[in-house]
Design a protein around this nucleic acid. Structure first.
Length: 553
RNA sequence: GCGCCUGUAGCUCAGUCGGAUAGAGCAACUGCCUUCUAAGCAGUGGGUCAGGGGUUCGAUUCCCUUCAGGCGCGCCA
C-alpha cells in the first residue's frame, strides 16, 4: 500500500522538478473522514519550493489524481493530501498478500547491513530474574524484527566470568560446602550469595568432589577448593541461565563471549596498548586512565587500578573493540537503565578506536518494579530474595510475560504486580490476540469440513468483500509492512504489539456481526480469504515478538 | 549539586522523525451464548496530556523553566 503510493508520489514530484527526493511520510489518518492514507509531503516541500503548501498540494494532486488505484484524492487543511483507494485496488493488494510468501509483508530496512545485538548478559552468579526477563523479551523480539527487516543479525551473550562476582560465587559455594562437610564454623563471605540455589550447588559439588577439599583447608588453605568450587558453580550457573532462557523461549544465541577468554587471548592487553599508542591513555596516581573527556564523557576513567588490577571497564574496552573489528554495521547493546551512565564512556572508546560512535546504539531497558499485593517487593540476589524468571514463567507463562514487556516502550518504568498479572492472566491482551488467531483457525477448519478451499486463494474473486468492516480489515492488513518498518527503524518492537491488538480489535466485532461460512459460495470464498489474510499477519507478527500462536484455546 | 529517564482517563500504558476530533487494556455499570470458540460482542461514564512560558499556520510531540518520581555520578561490578 505504502510502496505503491510512494512510487506514484515520487514520480509526480520528480516531474515537478524536485531533484532531491525527500523521504515520503505516509500516515494512516485517525479520522475516517480524511481518507485511507494521508501525506504531509506538500507541507514538507513548501520550504524547498518556496511556494505555499496548498499550491504544491494542488500540483501534486493534479499529477496523480487520474491514477486508477485512487478513488479520491483531496486536499485538506494546510496541505494534507488525503487519498482514498478504490476497492478493486485493495482487493488486488490483499490477493497479493495472500499469495506471496512472507516477503510480501517485508520492507527491506536493513539492506543487508550486519547487526550485532548483545542482550541479557547476566552475571553467572544466580538464576535470571524478572529484570533479565524484560531484557530477554525485548532483545529477542528486536533481533527477530531486524532479521525480518533485511538485517543480518547475530545474537550475543557476554559472560562476566573474570571479575569479583564469580569469585564471590565460588567463595559462597565453597563456604556452604564446608558447612555440609561438617565444618560449620567456616565463615561465610560477608557479601556472599545467600540464595537456596547456592546450597544446591554446594551439594552437587560435594557429590562430585567428595569431602577432600574440606580436609586440606587447614594445611593448604581454602584457595584450591574455592577455585574448584568457582569453576563448578560458574558452569552450573551458565547451564541454569541457558535453561531459563530456553524456558522463556528465547531463540538461542549465536555466540557466548567469555570475558575471561578476552584476557586469555590477550585482547585486553592488545586493546590497551592500542589506545596507549594513540595517546588516549595516561598515568596518574599510579593508575592508568582513559582520556574519555576527549570525547563525550564528563570524566576520565580508570582502566588499570594502582594495585595493578584491571577494572571491569578494561575488558569492556577489549570487548567492544572486538565487536568493531568483527565489522558490524550496527552494534546494539541492551542494558538495564541503571547503566545509562556507562554510555558516554563506551562511545568514547569507539571513537578512540577511530569508529563513528553512531554505529553503536544502546537500548535501555528500565527496571521492572516488582510488586506483590500492590507493595514493592525488594529483590536482592545476594540476600536470596528475588523472583526468578522461571518462577514467573511457571506462574504467568512465557507468552503473557513477553507480551506485557512488549506492550511498553523499553525505557519506561514498569510495574509488574505478580498478583495482578496472575489474576488477570485470563484477560490479558495477549489472549485477545491469540484468541483471534484460534478463532480463525476454527472457521477455516469448519470450512474445510465442508470441502471448501482454505489454503490457496489465487483465483478467488474478492469483490464480494464490500462491508465497511471488511474494507477496514483489508486496509489494516495492508498497513502491516508500515508498522514493521517503523518498528525496525526505531528499534522499538512494541509498535507491533499495539498493531496486533488493533487488528484483533477489528476482527472480533466482525466475527460477531458476519458469518464467514454461509450460503453464498462466492461471498464465503472471499471471506475465507480475508480470514486467512488476518491469520497470516497475526501469526507473522506474533512470531516476530516471540509469542506463540496457538491453534485452539 | 550535575547528568539521564519518566510524568497522558481511577489503575497500567500507547500516541507513528510537529499534524486534523488524544487512544487501548484493566477496573465500574447495563445487556448478549439453540448460529463458524463468550479468553468474545454491543453500550455507558471517565482527560486543565504534571504546572508555567516560548518557537509557528498548528505542540501530548521541539526549546526553556518549576514541581514530582526513578536511576546514575568509585582506582565497585
Amino acid at each position: 500500500m505504502k510502496k505503491d503510493l510512494v512510487k506514484i508520489l515520487e514520480t509526480a514530484i520528480q516531474a515537478m522538478g524536485v531533484s532531491a527526493l525527500p523521504q515520503i511520510d505516509v500516515e494512516i489518518p485517525k479520522s475516517g473522514a480524511h481518507g485511507h492514507v494521508a501525506t504531509t509531503l506538500a507541507m514538507g516541500l513548501a520550504k524547498a519550493l518556496r511556494k505555499p503548501p496548498r499550491q504544491i498540494a494542488e500540483d501534486i494532486v493534479a499529477a496523480i489524481k487520474d491514477n486508477p488505484q485512487f478513488e479520491k484524492v483531496e486536499i485538506a487543511g494546510p496541505g494534507f493530501i488525503n487519498i482514498t483507494f478504490t476497492s478493486s485496488y485493495l482487493h488486488a493488494s490483499l490477493l497479493q498478500l495472500l499469495d506471496g510468501d512472507t516477503s510480501m509483508l517485508r520492507v527491506d530496512t536493513g539492506r543487508g547491513r550486519r547487526a550485532l545485538v548483545e542482550f541479557v548478559s547476566a552475571n553467572p552468579t544466580g538464576p535470571l530474574h524478572i529484570g533479565h526477563a524484560r531484557g530477554a523479551a525485548v532483545g529477542n523480539a528486536l533481533c527477530n524484527l531486524l532479521q525480518e527487516s533485511g538485517f543480518s543479525v547475530e545474537r550475543e551473550f557476554y559472560i562476566n566470568d573474570a571479575g569479583r562476582q564469580v569469585l564471590l560465587l565460588g567463595e559462597s559455594v565453597f563456604a556452604r560446602y564446608m558447612h555440609l562437610c561438617g565444618f560449620e564454623g567456616y565463615t561465610f563471605p560477608e557479601e556472599g550469595y545467600r540464595g537456596d540455589y547456592i546450597e544446591d550447588i554446594a551439594r552437587a559439588f560435594r557429590e562430585k568432589e567428595g569431602d577432600h577439599h574440606s580436609q586440606v583447608v587447614n594445611e593448604e588453605g581454602p584457595q584450591k577448593g574455592i577455585q574448584a568450587a568457582r569453576e563448578f558453580a560458574y558452569r552450573k550457573m551458565l547451564d541454569l541461565i541457558r535453561k531459563d532462557l530456553d524456558l522463556f523461549k528465547v531463540k538461542p544465541y549465536d555466540r557466548w563471549v567469555s570475558e575471561k577468554s578476552l584476557y586469555d587471548r590477550g585482547e585486553v592487553a592488545g586493546a590497551i596498548s592500542f589506545l596507549k599508542d594513540k595517546g588516549a591513555l595516561y598515568e596518574k596516581d599510579g593508575a592508568l586512565w582513559f582520556r574519555s573527556t576527549g570525547y563525550t564523557d564528563d570524566k576520565d576513567r580508570v582502566v588499570i587500578k594502582s594495585d595493578g588490577a584491571n577494572t571491569y571497564f578494561a575488558s569492556d574496552i577489549a570487548y567492544h573493540k572486538d565487536k568493531l573489528d568483527r565489522g558490524y554495521d550496527i552494534i546494539i547493546d541492551i542494558w538495564g537503565a541503571d547503566h545509562h551512565g556507562y554510555i558516554p564512556r563506551i562511545e568514547s572508546v569507539m571513537r578512540a578506536f577511530g569508529y563513528d560512535s553512531s554505529r553503536f546504539r544502546v537500548i535501555l531497558v528500565q527496571m521492572v518494579n516488582l510488586l506483590k499485593h500492590g507493595e514493592p517487593f525488594q529483590m536482592s540476589k545476594r540476600a536470596g530474595t528475588f523472583v526468578t524468571l522461571s518462577d514467573v514463567v511457571d506462574l504467568v507463562g512465557a507468552d503473557t510475560t513477553k507480551f506485557i514487556f512488549l506492550t511498553r516502550k523499553s525505557d519506561s518504568h514498569l510495574d509488574f504486580d505478580i498478583d495482578v498479572v496472575t489474576a488477570q492472566s485470563a484477560e490479558n491482551p495477549v489472549y485477545y490476540v491469540q484468541y483471534a488467531n484460534a478463532r480463525i483457525n476454527s472457521i477455516l477448519a469448519n470450512a474445510r469440513e465442508k470441502g471448501l478451499e482454505t489454503n490457496r486463494f489465487g483465483g478467488v474473486d474478492l469483490s464480494p468483500l464490500s462491508a465497511p468492516e471488511e474494507m477496514e480489515i483489508i486496509r489494516k492488513l495492508l498497513s502491516y509492512p508500515m508498522v514493521l518498518e517503523g518498528a525496525a527503524r526505531s528499534y522499538e518492537p512494541h509498535h507491533i504489539t499495539f498493531y496486533l491488538q488493533q487488528l484483533a480489535g477489528i476482527f472480533h466485532p466482525y466475527y460477531h456481526k458476519y458469518k464467514v461460512v454461509g450460503d453464498d459460495p462466492a461471498l464465503t470464498a472471499a471471506r475465507l480469504a480475508l480470514c486467512a489474510g488476518i491469520q497470516k499477519v497475526l501469526h507473522d507478527a506474533l512470531t516476530i515478538l516471540g509469542v506463540t500462536a496457538p491453534k485452539r484455546m
